[in-house]
Design a binder for these strands. Sequence first.
DNA 1: ACCGGGATGTTCT
DNA 2: GAACATCCCGGTG
Length: 214
Amino acid sequence: MSPSPLDRAFYERDVREVAPALLHKLLVRGDRVGRIVEVEAYAGADDPASHAYRGPSPRTATMFGPPGHLYVYFTYGMHWCANAVCGPDGHASAVLLRAVAPEAGLERMRVARLAGPKAPRVLTDRDLCRGPARLCQAFGIERSFDGADLVTGDRGLVIADDGAPAPERVATSTRIGLTAGADRPWRWFVAGDPHVSGPGAVSPRQPPRRRRAG
DNA sequence: ACCGGGATGTTCT
DNA sequence: GAACATCCCGGTG
């Protein structure tokens, strides 16, 4: 049976509660499936790092709408990034999807990641979706997905719960790539998972830590 | 492993 | 003009 999409109430809570709860949920588009392993919270008008900090604009309109929709923005002249809108309608908080562990549809992801003039020369499975812009490219998420409803799946994209257990160890840190609001520890990731990007990432060859040699 | 430079275009001062 | 929720490549240890 196919996993069921998270419901509206899941997203309607405080963004700092929703963000860690998204770890180990599934991002699904058609045959492409990835397990969320790294997220960041952006707390709307209370958060100087949020695009919503200075009030609504055409670009951020989706963030100011109801929860459970996808806020997609374009950055660095090249890249798309995707967020799940959280909190009550008008609150404008969102969770940035920073990395997923690819679980299905890897060939289609690879084709998407290798399209375009700036494609990497070598691309491991580990790097298919490790980073917010990489995962968007792997899933084909761009401007037309801004506002997509993740609950109804109106554009063929959902976040779903397949019943997998929550991560055993969740680590936190400050958010990546910011100047304003850089001190707030609103990044959550699955400790020890090699598909995490940035600080805290574990190399795939790193052996699991032992408590004791015996 | 870590660091620096370039690519590239929208948004805001 | 400057900043920007990034990525890729090629240098150096």
